[in-house]
Each structure stands twice: as structure tokens, then as C-alpha cells.
Nucleic acid binder design. Sequence first.
RNA 1: GGGCCUGUAGCUCAGUUCUGGUCAGAGCGCACGCCUGAUAAGCGUGAGGCCGAUGGUUCAAGUCCAUCCAGGCCCA
Length: 949
Amino acid sequence: MNYKKTLNLPATKFPMKANLAKREPEQLKMWNENRLHDRIREHSKGRDLFILHDGPPYANGHIHIGTALNKILKDIIVRSRQMAGFDAVYVPGWDCHGLPIEHNVDKELGDKKQGMSQTEIRRLCRAYAEKYIDIQREEFKRLGVMGEWETPYLTLDHEYEAIIAKELCKFAMEGSLFRSKKPIYWCCDCNTALAEAEIEYYDQASPSIFVRFLLKDDLSGDVPPLTGKKVFVVIWTTTPWTIPANLAIAFHPDFEYVAADVGNNEVLIMARELVEGCMKTFGISEFSIIADIRAKTLERKRCIHPLYDRESLIVLGNHVTLDAGTGCVHTAPGHGREDYEVGLEYGLDAYSPVDDNGLFTDEVGFFNGQFVFKANKEINAKLQENAALIAEEKITHPYPHCWRCKKPVIFRATPQWFISMDKTGLRKRSLEEIDRVQWIPHWGRERIYGMIENRPDWCVSRQRAWGVPITVFYCDKCETLLMNQEITDTIFEQLKKHGADVWLEKDAKEFLPDGAVCEKCGNSTFTKETDILDVWFDSGVSHAAVLEQRENLKWPADLYLEGSDQHRGWFHSSLLASVGTRGKAPYKGVLTHGFVVDEGGKKMSKSLGNVVAPKEVIDKYGAEILRLWVSATDYRDDIRISQNILKQLTDAYRRIRNTCRFILGNLSDFDPLKHAVHYESLPEMDRFALCKLAELIEKGREAYDKYEFHVIYHALYNYCTVDLSAFYLDTLKDRLYTSAPDWPQRRSGQTVMHTILDAIVRLMAPILPFTAEEVWKFMPERDGKEESIHLTSLPVADTAWKNRELAERWEQLLEVRGEVTKSMEEARAMKLVGHSLDAGVIISASSDKYEALKSYTDDLRAISIVSKLSFAHKNNEDKTVAVGNTAEVNETPVKVPENGDESLSVLVVPAPGNKCERCWICDPSVGTISDHPTICRRCRDALEYMGGL
RNA sequence: GGGCCUGUAGCUCAGUUCUGGUCAGAGCGCACGCCUGAUAAGCGUGAGGCCGAUGGUUCAAGUCCAUCCAGGCCCA
């Protein structure tokens, strides 16, 4: 007789091989056809909302591993909150305006751009953005990210553009929007402003000049050795043409400065460290240091400009270095970024007497109308004439050039629009709001607080084409801003209807009420601003354009989740945009993740060749592996990825998958309604398994709540490996396979396995949505079984399952099992046994242990998976073993192992009796059954019960 | 150069704050062995770390302090 056929071996069509790269797209298709997302929305109507507001990725290029990480994290959160009982609506978005798109369109156009209208270029930019939105949308969907992909929010939507304008108008009406000069990169040849990204550095020869400024204020009070001397401060510059715009000289507050007497009653002030070198350059061999001067002493003292009858203020700034020059830095706030910054602190004007073509204006007198670079020579001559030029050389250094025409660019102050941080208390209110937000990790608070505390006013204007215009008017005569509710409403309606292009196409008067006059000077003609807005303003108002607009969302959001760089970016601009107009932060919580780096912790770069593309991972392993990777790491730090790490994750995935598969195989004949065994009737071991499951569920739920997914990954994985595969399921096999199908010990095991699988599949669903769904479909049908795992909820642990006393008892049994397996290994090494069922075990225990364990003899035998297990008393004095009934053993004991636990030792012997052909357990009853001489009594009973006899 | 953060076995993570002492752990991987009734599976045993480095505080430091090194993000 073929007894194998009488066993209940696992049977399932659930494939062992995941074949994710192929199966995932099919699953996606199916979800799409079944309108799963819509069903989930309907299903959760009326629940509390949980809103994770999507930070819009930039609609340019394919997604990279960092974008994938971000979106998967969001998806895990949305799915887990959904399954925790919320209505978690996720509306993805895209950031569509801005320089990179315009720049790429520019590049594609080349010379064709000449003669094209602003509107035509904008149309191309729009098409470009839309193209990449479609590409990225598919890429995100492929990751298994669920959301309203059919109706995402786009910053280029007409309504969104209208809201951008409307929010800006609020700032204008409130009085925090103002116009002021600020230096920017400017190409005199292309006649255009340039962004940082459009600058290319090439080496260039420049003049290098040292100029002395006569100190106007008398310093002899503070520094007596200077009494009666002519004191000069010496500066160095490579752009003589900015000397006419000099308004200050900057000193470092911490450097040491000295006064060097160079004879002729003249004294030069420079940084001590640079004196020697400079004097050589100047050709001055005879000099003596006559005083040390602290920078603080010089602060706010005044020098006389070498060319004009004007003062130059001495200021302090940390940007001053000792790398070159004199340690006293020529400062023209209209022509340098740091100059501008330090100028702001001292209330200096961003003076820039240069026009769009790079020609000096008539303000500068002598050089009026000259091109700045050409004027260098003449300026030097003039300085020479005024005895201010101490030295003149040539220097080759990297200098910024225009990306398009490759000509050197200049830094030049032009009028820009700003949102003031302090005029209306925006800074103060924002700082207060920061403390009302939950920052995860907690240090996010320090980071953004420091930034808001120290940042300058927000420059919101850009001189570009692809963006939302700054929809304001200012008086032609006095430049006063004109803005009121009526104008705001008109602008909003116009943009909502026609998009932002309408601002360029229509005349100013179409937006202005009849008879509008400047409230300051009464003039009735106005300039329509044509600058566009900083794209950070676009995305910064998403709370208004999305959260407030859509009925299924709410304001403020529960959570914003982006990389930690967004403390400076979106979290920052969103906070300002919201506090400035609503007085409150647009989010209750902000979660940040780190950046993806390689296995060595180095950032990814093409040159290092360590870039991992999401597509490659998906094609090779599947999106589930990428998702598992996201869940496995503590994303608050940098996140490492490598082939090695992915390999490990595929192993882990297989283990989880196989565990599910094994359970499914053993549930093939299980109907939960008919066969489930009540908790009270379960054997202790099964109740212990449920106790472990309860621990897992609680840990998992708590971890989801705290967004600590790596805790779930580890808990789930360890549970599958340690608690299930290596213990419970392995032990259960005998019961499942050899019992008659309906025997209670088998149904008990199935009941518990079904409960376990139901729980772990729910627990993994937010992380592994594809696999969870696949398993779900193979699970036994029952009344009320949802059609999709994603329509269910997270598992709940029955309070009855938690039984500490029982758990402690069984942890002890597991320890004994550990002793047995150790001893088994020694017996194996001696070739005494192979399969553990070949062995019998005699455990010698001290009296207390003996009493505690004796009644668990059968359980211990089962969990040790040996054929026979018996107990003997142990004599602690002489460490000899008294085997109770040696007749059972038949063979000479091999060894008394020196176990770590002195009170317990294990003796492994060949199992008594013959091996049952059916259940493989050695038992004396084998051979005693006349019709079935190769099986044991238990198997005979099973066969009889099944009607096989 | 400044701000914020990170550094425990080959890998992924526990343990690290307020609350210093039985705290050096888990799983994987690896090595060796077993099984062939989860089989492109399953089980067992074992080896692996001077807790980034150096100083300090303390009776006692992975845990507190300082400095340094390496790395990340954001600024300059």
C-alpha cells in the first residue's frame, strides 16, 4: 500500500516563484479594471480623514531611486492609515513651472527660439511638463502607489495658477510684498537675467588691483600710535569696474588687523597674516607695524571713496577670508551676493549704476556710457591719478559665463519683489507655528527653526518665461503698489478661466477697475509686472490650491513627508505661504527621510558609477522588493542600497512568501466556518502560537502608528522565520499530515494557521500590496471575505490570546528543545542519527525541573521532533545519570553532554522500535498490526477513521 | 567655513535621550551538518563585533562630555 497517498500533504496552486516583474503589472491591470481605488473610497466614506499631502515632484525626467523611496513611503503610510480605519485620500501632484523645464525647452529650440513669442515658448514648456507627468505617473503606478492618478494636482492647471496669483495678491494687500533691488547674474549680451544653473565657469584673465581708501574718521583715540598719520584701508579686487559702486569695506570680526607704517607719514591697514605678502606685491620693502587693531574698533568708521566725494563704510562680515587680498574686502552691495547681504545688515543701498547692456549710467560721471569690462582700464587710470592704486597685476581665475553665449556675465542689482519676513511679523508667527507642528524626527524642528530665524526676506521674482506672473501693478510715477480685493478677484477669475497666459496677453486696463488711481500720488497710469514667481511659491500654496479646494481633503494636512532637504524647500515655503495668509501652518506633522546612498554610505553619482535606477530593480526583482527595501531601513538616516542589500531582501521576500505558501497548502481543505476550533479547545501549543501572534500584531500596529516600518519588517520576518518556520509550522507538520483530515488536533492547527495567515497578510498589505493580494485570493473563502485585502483592515489581536503565564511556560519548553537540538547535533556528528525522528531522547533533570517538565513530555517530544522522549532524575552531586527505564533504549548511551544548564542534560539514543512507513516515527507498535506491518498504531487509527481500512 | 544629522558583527536592525552597571543582542548571509512529505524548499549547529577614533567624567561608559575621523542634507 502506498501510505504516502493517505497523508494530508500541502496542496496549493499559489506559486512558489513570485515572478514579480511579470505578475505585478497584471495585478495592477486587474485592480484598475475592478476600480479598486474607487471601491476603497466608497467603502471608507464617512470615516475620519487622514490626509498625507503630496509634495509635488518636478515634472522633468524619469523618477530616480530617491523619488521612488519617497513615493513608496507615502504609499505605505496611506495604505496603513487606510487599513487602520481612516479614509486616507491621496492626491498626487506635480510641480510644473520653473527654470529646468524652460531651460530644456530652450536647448531643444536652439536658434529657433529667436522670434518666438513668450506665449509660444510657454506652450512648449507646458507640453514638456505634461509629457513627463505622464511618464512619471506610469512609473509611480508601477511601484504600486495608490492614489487619485486620474485627477492629480498640477501647478500648471488654470485653477491652480489662479490660486497662486490670488495667494500672492493676499501678500500684496497685507503689505508684506515689496519691491527692492538685489544683485543677480546678468548677461549683458543676451540682455537677460540668469539663474545659478545657467552659469558656467571658465578661466579668465582679470585685472587684480589693490586700492587704498583714506580713513575719514580719526582713530587715534582708540589707537594712539596712529595720531597724526594718514591712515588707509587697503582693498583688493579683480573687478575694478565695481569700484564706482563701492559703498563699504568689510572686515572679519575675528581676524587680527594691523597698521603698517610705510613712511611718508602714511599707514596702511590690513590683516596681519597678509601684510608680508601684500607689501611684496606693492614693492614696499620698508615698513613697520605700529599697532594692532581689532576689527570691532573699525566697525562703522568711514573711509573716503577714491573716486567720488562719498563715504565708504567699514562693516564686519564672516564671509571675509585670508585666502587672497588684504583681509579688507571691497564691498559693492549692488554687485555681489555677499556684498549685498552684508549691505542689508548695515542698511546700505544695492547701488548698481549699470544698465541692461552693461553700460555705466550717467551717475558714475567719468565712465558714463562705457561697457563695464572695457572701463576697467580707465578706472585704474583714474585711481592711479588719485594716488589710490597701490598695485596692479593680472590674474587668471574661474569666472562665471553665460551658458548660451559663453560671454562673461556680471552681477548686477535689479528691482526684485520680496515678501518681508518682518514687516507683518511673518518670521515671528512662523516660528511660533513651528512649535505647534510635530516634527519627525524631532530634530527637524531645530533645522527649520534655525532657517526661518535667520533667513533674509523671500525674493519671489524671477525674470523668466515659464511660471506664474507676479500679478501686480505699480504706479508709473512713484512705483507704489496698486492692489485691492476687486483687482484680486478680477485677476483670479481671468486666470482661472484662461490660465496665466492671459496676464501676458491682455492689457493692464483689462484687470483694473475704471478710474483706478495711485493712492499715493494720484497718477492713473500703471505698470503691469512681467516677472514671474519663484516656483517655491507655486508649490508653497498647494495647501490652498489642493487641500482647501477639494472636498474630499481637509486643511491643514495631517502629514507632509519629504526628504530632509525640504526643510529649506517645500516645508519652508509652505509654512511661509500659509502663515502669511492664514496665520497657521498647513500641516500638523512633518516627516522627513534621508537620502539614498550606496553601500559604503557615499552619495550616488554618475561619476562614481554607484547609481541604482528604480527601473532596473523593478525589472530584475519587482516593485515588491523595492518596497520591502523601503520598509526594511530606518529611513530617518541615510538609506543604503546595493545589489548585496537587494539580494538579502529577495531572500527575505522568499521566506515570507514561502511561509504563506506553506500555510495555504495546509488550508486547502479547511473551511473556517465549518472547521474552526474554538480557542478554549485548542492545545496549549496552539494557544502559545496565538500568543506570539498577538505580540506580533501589537508590535506591528504600534509601529505603523509611529511610522516605524523597519520595526514591522524585522518583526514580521523574524516571526516567519523563528516562530513559524523553525518552530510552530515545523512541529505542526506531523499533526497536519498524519492525522485524519477531521481530527481535532489537525483542525486546531489549521484554525491557528488560518488566523496567523489572515493576520500577517493584513499586516504586510501596506508594504507588500501585490503579494498580500495574491495570498488573499488563495485564502479559504468564507462569508464576508472582502474581495481585496486592500478593502480590509489591520489585524486585531484577541485579548484572550495574550497569556503571559502560558507563554513563559512554553519559552521554557523551547529552551529545553534548544538543549535537545544541541545534543542531537553531537549525535549526528557521530553518525548516530540523521533525521531527528531516528532519535530518542532521555532528559535528565534536577528535581525541580523534573517536576516542571514531566507533564509536558508529549509536547516536548513533538516540538523536538524526535520519536521518543523520556525523563530521568539527575543526581547533581556526582553528575551521573540514572536512566529510568533502560529497556526503552536498547542501545548503549553515547555520552552525557556537558550542557550549559547544569540542572539539565540530554542523552540522545537511537529511537526504540521500528520506523513507521507512514508517519516516520519509530514506535514499538510498528510490526504488531497484522494487515499493516509497516505502520504504527496511530496511523492505523487514522486510516481506519478515514475509511481506508 | 556654518547649521542640522549619522557612525553597534559582511548586511538590515535592537540596545544609546531624560533614566551609565547581568548589554554586547536578533535575523539574514557565511561555514559545517541533516533532511528529501514547504523541494529553485525545510531543519539544526557554529564562527563573526576592542559598539568610528582618541581623550575625559565616574567605583563603573556602546550609553554622559570634549576633540578628531568618516559620511549625508542644507547653506556659505
